[in-house]
Design a protein around this nucleic acid. Structure first.
Lengths: 242, 242
DNA sequence: CGGCTTGTTGATTTAACTCAATGCCCGTGG
DNA sequence: CCACGGGCATTGAGTTAAATCAACAAGCCG
């Protein structure tokens, strides 16, 4: 079953149908969205929108990975979130964009023009309800990341990051699995509030300690999940039984 | 006009009527909330709810200041937000609480039992719409704080913090005004991801540089607003005309 | 086969932390 | 009324985790 990113495609078979902003919509509401949507694709590395730009469209990320970040004048950059399929871009009620959005991999967006979509948010409770849920989830994630940025050591930061990747991708039954780093060392550094050299050093340190194993620069395996969790600095009990 | 925190009081004259979760509600919807609300007061320093606790009530903060924070096992604490009047506590759809909530000053909450309130969120679009707006605003604030925690220097962090206080309290016309630090040095440190000694040192440094002036430990005046803004590390142009 | 991007490793510096002493303010009780 | 003690804040001395600067290695692509 392939879904082609074409406006004539039905939303019903869209890969993010049940997680995106439309998750709670019924058939009729979906038809409204169907009439408004348009797709747009960005190559890896391309900027999608800059902070301060006029917000002409809202969008759901359908495929690929994008980053949300802010750069200070002297070039210091902090990533404030990774956008994955079903994540939403734009803030109804605002005229401009607060953070830079950049395609990390090739990205496809399902876009809606601002005005018509804002009207829909007002008129269709299923959309504002879903938007509320998603915003609250992201808020919790952002706050947890604040703890990481403010209080964790470099090693804890990387361990947390690796654990996050493992959790996202793991189906509980899978055993020794290969995972992929979606970001370069520099991007990881900007996500964790560190420098790329520190990322490199801490990765080799985790490697030396037998926690992870690298197939190549971008692919790794977890050799000791319990040790990884301990290294993350989170809740000592939370993970595997000791 | 005094508003007494008594269940028989009408919501119409509540001090946070037009900013809280009820902001968009009409008279009828307000009556529903009126029938559900109860007030609770906490002394300064008291815990309001702990991470992991069952969420029995949602609440709007009516008066005072509370903090939202997380503490790692070894005692490292990171504050992830300050709750001010009209801010909301609790996440509809979750059973437990994600962060510790503590009264910084004396705090009064307007509370709603979980189940009935969750039903209301489903049935009354004005509530989910307002909740969405508030969550999105907080999300932007949280992300901006992530930039501070991940990339700003100690001096920039404190300057940003002071500027935040000044912005919150200032009516544009006011001139040389006195502001109050709502937190102790230690609490500021936990908010900014620093230690209390660093807070102290940086405050005296800003004092020496003629940026601020202290009346006592908790009260200060801004001597050079432009310099304060420059020290915050934010957008070089954003503030006062150079 | 170079040239470019990305990543690793080493040497050195530095901003912020830690540890420790002292000061200040305020309330309480002799 | 003054002494004492506890909480909060300041300041100093020394340490350290991560940043910076710099060289080099490993892929990758035309």
């Amino acid at each position: 079953m392939t879904f082609v990113f074409n406006e004539r495609e039905k939303c019903g078979s869209c890969p993010i149908r049940h997680r995106a902003i439309c998750a709670r919509c019924d058939e009729d509401e979906l038809t409204l969205l169907e009439g408004m949507k348009s797709y747009q694709t960005f190559e890896a590395g391309q900027p999608i929108i800059w902070r301060g730009d006029d917000l002409t469209h809202f969008a759901s990320l359908v495929s690929g990975i994008a980053s949300l970040s802010r750069t200070l004048e002297d070039g210091r950059t902090q990533m404030v979130g990774l956008l994955l399929p079903s994540d939403f871009i734009g803030r109804p009620g605002r005229e401009t964009v607060d953070f830079d959005v950049t395609a990390v991999t090739e990205v496809t967006l399902c876009r809606f023009q601002r005005r018509p979509f804002e009207d829909l948010v007002e008129r269709v409770p299923h959309i504002s309800q879903r938007m509320m849920e998603m915003a609250l989830d992201e808020l919790t994630a952002a706050r947890e990341w604040m703890v990481l940025l403010g209080r964790k050591t470099a090693r804890e930061k990387i361990a947390t990051f690796l654990e996050m990747i493992v959790r996202r991708e793991t189906v509980p039954t899978q055993s020794i699995q290969e995972y992929q780093l979606p970001l370069t060392r520099e991007e990881i550094a900007n996500f964790l509030g560190l420098t790329l050299e520190t990322i490199s050093r801490q990765l080799t340190s985790l490697k030396k300690d037998g926690v992870v194993e690298f197939i190549d620069r971008r692919h790794f395996r977890i050799k000791d999940l319990n040790a990884l969790h301990l290294a993350s600095g989170d809740d000592a009990d939370g993970g595997v039984i000791v």
